[in-house]
Design a protein around this nucleic acid. Structure first.
Lengths: 228, 228
DNA sequence: TATCGTCGGATTGTTGAACAATACCCGGGG
DNA sequence: CCCCGGGTATTGTTCAACAATCCGACGATA
């Protein structure tokens, strides 16, 4: 009945510290988000309200609220009177997503950002190198996401951060759909290094140009994989 | 009971044509969005579930779903166990919003866009001129929004379009909060004209630079009005 | 008077059940 | 082969209830 993760001590501490306790609907949404990110739920899969309600031990109405959250994030699409399905990105969508990425990542990069921000980008680059050295493809993928999130974070905008998070979540969905091979990110390591170096060298314009080229190439490869 | 606008003929036609009929929750959200845009609901106002449910003749649960939509659009904020309130933008938020606008509007403009897209931008400029000639401040404001929406539309990205729409809705909220005087937009007419001219002249780079300067200046003025 | 607890009312969060409306599946007829 | 109808499952929406939480007022204490 999902009572195991409702630790009273946590609840009490949260109440004391005025920290917003995530509602049940939020936790359901978080759980589904997790399953979506992990590829447990593949694109096109139908999400039946009653099934999920029973699985997670919550009311159908609560599941419905969670669906609203996920639909707003485009991770799920609602077909009226037919149900909600895990979103599947078509050829047009990947171009769309890359358009968004080009816009916000380049803008963030051009701004330069604070020294701490640049340090975070550097950290993500090193994280990727370490993952590559360990041959850990999973870690390599998340490091790459950290890299791009760090770039957007340079702008210091909460809104851009959440937009980027949503876009990355969408792309992750697409990856599960088009099982991308392991050494896919491998080639991007040097790109990341170059971009980061240009940023550290105080040349954000060049860093942005490198990034744009990177994104264009990445989009082409994705398109090739997908067969668009 | 909100049955007046549920014309069976409309319903049937929609079913025949496979047009998604907006759910009740969507219509409630739309109604609230409208009231928010019109300044009927001012920032900080509390939205009580039962009141709205009674006013619109719908269930509390449906109102709740509508709130989830609006919260996802940042038009409304949820304070757990306290209720939802019309969002009010602080000094940090307006900078945040302008950061988003700089990113996506400049990117869209740099792309150049299709001839039809450019024509749409031109149309918005002329719409603004006409409104100014009529001394219609309301029309002037919407024309300005059309102008910026047209710019973003140049990128041809559904996602960027919705992001821009949300951002503009947020700004509209702010305007009601900081009653901006009438001849506020007036000065921007020439900016719009210049930007559009540069775009038509095949110099999107210059158009983007002009726009960025425009946005910087606009943010400064907003800040002055707000007192940040 | 000012601060602190406590109590009561109001609102939210969540559940469960019910019902109509709709879409899907399947078998029968043209 | 396609169209057409009926049965079933699922969604959309409502309603009523309850616990949890917050807010304000009242009163006690110093």
């Amino acid at each position: 009945m999902m009572t195991s993760d409702a630790d009273p001590r946590v609840l009490a501490a949260a109440a004391r510290l005025r920290i917003a306790v995530p509602s049940v609907a939020d936790r359901v949404a978080a759980e589904l988000r997790l399953q979506l990110a992990d590829g447990v739920l593949l694109p096109g899969t139908r999400l039946t309200e009653s099934t999920i309600a029973a699985d997670l031990g919550v009311s159908r109405n609560t599941v419905r609220e969670a669906f609203a959250e996920l639909a707003a994030e485009r991770l799920v699409v609602r077909h009226p009177n037919r149900g909600v399905f895990v979103a599947s990105l078509g050829a047009g969508d990947i171009h769309d997503v890359y358009t968004v990425r080009r816009a916000i990542e380049a803008a963030a990069l051009r701004g330069g950002g604070s020294p701490e921000g640049v340090a975070a980008v550097r950290a993500a680059v090193e994280e990727g190198k370490a993952a590559a050295a360990d041959d850990d493809d999973e870690a390599l993928g998340t490091a790459n996401q950290h890299f791009h999130r760090a770039i957007v974070a340079l702008a210091g905008s909460r809104r851009l951060d959440t937009i980027m998070a949503q876009v990355l979540a969408e792309m992750r969905l697409f990856f599960h759909q088009a099982t991308v091979d392991a050494h896919f990110y491998r080639g991007y390591l040097s790109d990341n290094e170059q971009i980061c170096a240009a940023l550290e060298a105080g040349d954000p314009g060049r860093a942005a140009d490198l990034l744009l080229a990177y994104l264009d190439r990445s989009e082409q490869e994705q398109r090739a994989v997908h067969g668009g």
